[in-house]
Computed example of a mutant assay.
Amino acid sequence: MTTSYQVMTIPTNIEDRNYQDRILQDVSRTFALTIPQLPPSLYPVIGNAYLLCRIVDTVEDDNGLSSEQTRKFTDMFIRVVSGEIPAEAFAEALYPLLSTHTIPAEHDLIKNTPAVIRITHSFNATQRNALERCVRIMGQGMADYQDCESLAGLKDLAALDRYCYHVAGVVGEMLTELFSDYSDEIGRNKQTLMALSVSFGQGLQMTNILKDIWEDRKRGACWLPQDIFREQGFDLADLRPGISDPRFHQGLAVLIGIAKAHLRNALTYTCMIPSKEAGIRRFCLWALGMAVLTLNKINRNRNFDEGNQVKISRQSVKATVLLTSLLARQDWALEKVFAWTSRQLPEVDILGKKV
């Protein structure tokens, strides 16, 4: 039976909107920078979508929760978003169980889940459906992968593709759904954009995986695909911080090249957004530009042993923002900038074979 939570459109209030704006600043400087570039009608829903995903991520990452608790709260939150159960029940049950591993801003976010959900339930049916689908696929997929976390790595590149879809590709699909709902002109290319959006998400996620190799290992996880490194003669079981094995570095090069190929698709996606929608283009371009710069740092320093060593500087972020904003409407210029900034990255086709 469909509950009243599902069918009602709940008016949002200024306190909830102010909270959403504030907590975005606290949980993600990057998204707090990019989301305001969006058109005013998209800014609230995409900001809310990010917070929903961040709540799922908080549940999955808190090492104080058992596997059973993680799955329980993930399933519970999926039902909260779809309106089957009240958000207060979720927040009151989870908040006291969070560990110090979870940052204070995320503690605050969980405590104030009802405010976030009130905003979620204020959107139109198409927007709510897109958010609900994303949270459901992401939550179920991340819970499944948490059960098989280990230092052995993922079985193969196909497993990495599936993981990236659950944590990032589905977000690209959600954004495309929201963009298409916002603009009929964007919606005319929806089918093509949907496929490219999954690739866009994978490029960003692979960049994060490569940057966070050593931080992930500290908590017992490795998202690198075994087959890519086995082809180079390297066993991920032998992976240690500070390793200088050229076989491992060559495996990294293949993954960097695959990420680059996905980011090239991200540029194609961005250029399919009408040039008059400069705000949406900036939203995409800033994430794309920072990912390319991060891949460059990883590529130049393949023996890094902590993420801070390959983190791009604030100056680089500012330069990316300035340049892509100036060129946001000019496809030919964006193509040239991508080619120039990624010229030193390995060339690998989307299947992971060198070309």
Rank of each mutant, 00 (worst) to 15 (best):
S183M: 04
D184N: 12
D184E: 15
I186A: 13
N189P: 03
N189V: 01
N189Y: 10
Q191V: 11
Q191G: 08
T192N: 15
M194F: 11
M194G: 04
M194S: 14
L196M: 13
L196C: 10
S197V: 01
V198Y: 13
S199G: 03
S199W: 02
S199R: 15
F200Q: 10
F200K: 12
G201T: 10
G201S: 08
G201Y: 09
Q202K: 15
Q202T: 06
Q202N: 13
L204E: 02
L204F: 04
L204D: 01
Q205W: 00
Q205S: 02
M206H: 06
T207Q: 13
T207R: 12
N208D: 05
N208C: 02
N208G: 03
I209H: 13
I209F: 11
I209V: 14
I213N: 08
E215I: 00
D216E: 08
D216I: 02
R217M: 11
R217N: 05
R217W: 03
R217C: 02
K218E: 12
R219H: 11
R219Q: 09
G220L: 03
G220V: 00
G220K: 07
W223L: 13
L224A: 04
Q226H: 02
D227S: 13
I228N: 09
R230V: 03
Q232S: 04
G233N: 08
G233H: 09
L236E: 14
L236H: 08
D238M: 13
D238Y: 10
P241Q: 10
S244F: 02
S244C: 06
D245N: 13
P246S: 12
R247G: 04
R247V: 01
F248D: 05
G251A: 01
A253E: 14
L255F: 00
I256K: 09
G257C: 07
A259K: 11
A259I: 01
K260C: 06
H262C: 10
R264D: 07
N265T: 08
N265I: 00
N265Y: 12
A266N: 09
T268Q: 15
T268R: 15
T270P: 10
C271N: 14
M272L: 14
M272W: 06
M272P: 04
P274G: 06
S275P: 00
K276V: 07
E277A: 01
E277I: 00
A278P: 02
A278K: 15
G279P: 05
G279S: 07
I280N: 13
I280Q: 14
I280K: 14
R281D: 06
F283P: 02
L285I: 03
L285P: 05
W286V: 08
W286G: 08
A287S: 15
A287I: 05
L288C: 02
G289V: 03
G289I: 02
G289Q: 11
T294C: 10
T294E: 11
I298C: 10
I298P: 08
N299D: 12
R300S: 11
R300P: 01
R300I: 01
N301Y: 09
R302D: 03
N303F: 01
F304V: 00
D305L: 07
E306V: 04
Q309M: 13
Q309A: 12
